[in-house]
Design a protein around this nucleic acid. Structure first.
Ligand SMILES: [Mn+2]
Ligand SMILES: [Mn+2]
Ligand SMILES: [Mn+2]
Ligand SMILES: [Mn+2]
Lengths: 221, 221
DNA sequence: ATATTTTTTTAGATTTGTCTAAATTTTAAT
DNA sequence: ATTAAAATTTAGACAAATCTAAAAAAATAT
């Protein structure tokens, strides 16, 4: 895989994210996302086309091709591994890691990334719950977050309980929650950050903030 | 402290290293060191002068001023902390760390560097034995390396023994070596990498490779 | 179907960092 | 003191990445 400039990488990565939702990516959308001007996007699309990373016909929008997606995944891999490092090892707060990772992701030594991955224990998800691509670009196709970070009215499945104390297990059994349980969050009470959740046919249940933080769910396509 | 471009930082750092030996740094020396052309150096010196980081009069060479030195030290701090990280945590070989650190040093988040420093346990020396500047730019003014990395005929002082086993201590006592002993390496036998060392008035002694690797000495201005 | 608005592209300029070739200054040699 | 050589600077060009303003194309509205 060739080396690309920081600017090229930022374009490639952002196209990747945009084309998940929108089949074909528009000049304006990309310009808006990258805080740049449509004219700059057009210039870059010409360049990425000659480098055979995107399909692009003037006025018709663009998409990454196979090679483009491979490059994008390797950038996303670096970004999320660094985010994990910053959060897990350096104890950064969640809201501080993104901007730093945005710079670190452009240090492109293959060996660095793979050794970092090993050092971190091959994590599968970054601190935001987004899946981390492995060496081959493969990753889980769902998000994994704590219940307190799950968007409302989104069906999700319990996949992990971080605190395994007997007290925790007791309250889980009482509320009818176990690995594999499908649920959604209906409401949050700002007073104590407790959540009202709904499991299939059952009546709504209330969950404390502490409990919610220790229950991890997966959701998404 | 302002932010500087990668290119500016590489110039600043290299001037710092060159002006240790040479009182005033020349255009050619810097161009040679940075693998660039003298004309490019002149251009950059004009810029660094307007940014008040160097003293520079055409044809007279240049030096970093106080602010320039401060910036240089913060770049060297980042460089050496990352080298330590790569070697200590990611288990890179010594000869692979420099090029990667050359890139990582330009990620300038202050918080990142300070948290990395903390994570690493505030190391005082990088894997090459070069001192690491602290948050305030202060550092030891000597090198610390294992005896096997000490240049020939350089007076040095034993300051650390990494292996404290009784066998180790026995052989050290027998050879009259202790913390504070002043010595120099005279010769290396390629066959088994053993070293001939000289302690003050005493007759020369031979030291095995294994032993040499565990004895650390300090030397330099 | 035409006119209007929005989107996208082109044309031309700018900034940063680099280069080569030529001019200038300094240093060294005769 | 001249002359030759070396070091440095200037002049002018170029590539990368960006911008503004104008032109062109596509989408929308009447
Ligand atoms: Mn992120
Ligand atoms: Mn980025
Ligand atoms: Mn560097
Ligand atoms: Mn080093």
């Amino acid at each position: 895989m060739l080396n690309y400039s920081t600017s090229e990488e930022n374009y490639i990565k952002t196209i990747f994210h945009l084309q998940v939702d929108n089949d074909t990516v528009t000049t304006n959308a990309l310009a808006h996302e990258l805080l740049t001007r449509p004219a700059s996007v057009t210039d870059m699309m010409k360049k990425l086309k000659t480098k055979k990373l995107v399909q692009y016909q003037p006025y018709k929008g663009f998409r990454l091709n196979m090679e483009g997606k491979k490059v994008a995944l390797s950038i996303i891999r670096r970004h999320r591994l660094w985010e994990f490092f910053l959060s897990e090892k350096l104890k950064f707060d969640w809201d501080e890691i993104h901007d730093v990772a945005e710079e670190l992701e452009h240090v492109s030594s293959r060996k660095l990334v793979d050794k970092l991955d090993e050092f971190l224990g091959y994590p599968k998800f970054d601190p935001h719950g987004d899946p981390i691509p492995d060496v081959h670009g493969k990753m889980e196709n769902f998000q994994r977050v704590s219940l307190s970070a799950l968007p409302f009215n989104t069906l999700a499945e319990v996949c992990l309980v971080s605190n395994q104390s007997s007290g925790m297990l007791e309250v889980l059994r009482h509320k009818n929650i176990a690995i594999g349980t499908k649920l959604e969050v209906k409401k949050k009470f700002g007073f104590d950050n407790s959540l009202e959740i709904k499991i299939r046919q059952q009546a709504p249940v209330t969950i404390s903030e502490q409990l919610a933080k220790n229950i991890f769910v997966k959701y998404g396509s």
